[in-house]
């Protein structure tokens, strides 16, 4: 069976890989034998190998160099292009993060290949499913040139273990000058949160303009914490200064696809839906019975969030005993 290259996203916060990598390994199995590619600083692969083996990496290509860490996007694309030429894989699967999409784009130009982004599913024949126009349209597409490159949208595939050998092969890293054009001088973390990552969380609780103040977002955080959820916000809430932009869900913010999305004080504008419409279960709390968010809610409560949400938080906490 042909190899399928999977670009590994290392966990920025410490050991191991991001969940998106396990999803990509799982999706790649439909296309062939997953071969993980770790491109990072020296020593990067060591902490990743066990997980890669557990989730089906038959091989692990290890490309380690300080330059990969110190320069933006281009080095990873160059490493992958080298492997595509060398190993002639059936396809390349990359997690759909901002960096992942950009690596995929450069790889497409370098290898004369077609590129499909934000894929939610891919079949053995290489047919990809994509969700377009704020989740209103489902598209099936196919790459027709070169080595198909797919970027996989987070939370669309359930990672399942499939133990494999994860045989390591070292890849020599020799970067061109062009790959060292943009220096990453610093990586700054401004918000450390004990909550799960928004795009990876199984549950997201989002607040909108209806929350009415930054202080009142404590209500949203309270419910989120009782559920072990991430916190999100509508653009109106962000623009009003209630919550930081990093947490914005929607067309100009993050796209999330959790098991459960709870929209609190959010009207459900199409640009907000764009970021959450594919959530498995949607719950809405809004005092306006005509709010469009109710059209896509599996369960809706017409009521004042200031009473409904704290009561729910209390009941959940009580259940946990």
């Amino acid at each position: 069976m042909a190899e399928v290259l999977v670009l590994v996203e290392l966990n920025p916060a410490g050991e191991g890989v991001r969940k998106t990598t396990l999803e990509a390994l799982t999706a790649a199995r439909a296309l062939g034998e997953p071969a993980a590619v770790v491109a990072g600083a020296p020593g990067a692969a060591a902490g990743a190998r066990a997980q890669l083996a557990e989730y089906g990496a038959v091989k692990v290509y290890v490309a380690e160099s300080d330059d990969i860490e110190n320069y933006l996007v281009a080095p990873k694309a160059e490493v992958l292009a080298g492997l595509v030429a060398d190993k002639q894989p059936a396809a390349v699967v990359i997690p759909s993060s901002p960096e992942g999409k950009e690596v995929a784009a450069r790889l497409a130009v370098k290898t004369g290949s077609g590129l499909l982004t934000d894929v939610t599913e891919v079949t053995a024949e290489g047919t990809a499913t994509q969700v377009a126009f704020a989740g209103q349209t489902i598209v099936h597409s196919k790459v027709t040139a070169g080595t198909p490159i797919y970027t996989l949208r987070g939370n669309s595939v359930t990672p399942t273990p499939a133990p494999a050998a994860a045989a390591e092969e070292t890849v020599a890293v020799q970067l061109s000058d062009a790959a060292r054009a943009t220096k990453v001088v610093d990586r700054v973390v401004e918000q450390k949160s004990s909550r799960p990552e928004l795009t990876e969380a199984a549950i997201v609780v989002s607040g909108g303009r209806g929350v009415a103040s930054a202080e009142n977002f404590a209500i949203i955080e309270g419910l989120a914490d009782s559920l072990g959820a991430a916190v999100g916000a509508s653009r109106a809430a962000v623009d009003s200064g209630y919550y930081p932009h990093t947490f914005q869900v929607g067309q100009t913010g993050k796209t999330v696809s959790p098991q459960l999305y709870i929209a609190v004080g959010i009207s459900g504008a199409i640009q907000h839906r764009a970021g959450m419409q594919t959530s498995k279960t949607i719950v809405a709390v809004n005092k306006d019975p005509e709010a469009p968010i109710f059209e896509l809610a599996d369960f809706g409560i017409v009521g004042d969030l200031n009473t409904v949400v704290p009561a729910a938080t209390e009941a959940i906490t009580a259940r946990k005993g």
Binding site: T137, V139, G300
Partner: peptide, 19 residues
């Protein structure tokens, strides 16, 4: 380098419950 094979509107969600 890629081709859209087909497309369809997202199937409407089943009627939700509103209380």
């Amino acid at each position: 380098t890629s081709q859209v094979l087909d497309f369809a509107g997202r199937p409407p969600k089943g009627e939700g419950v509103k209380v």
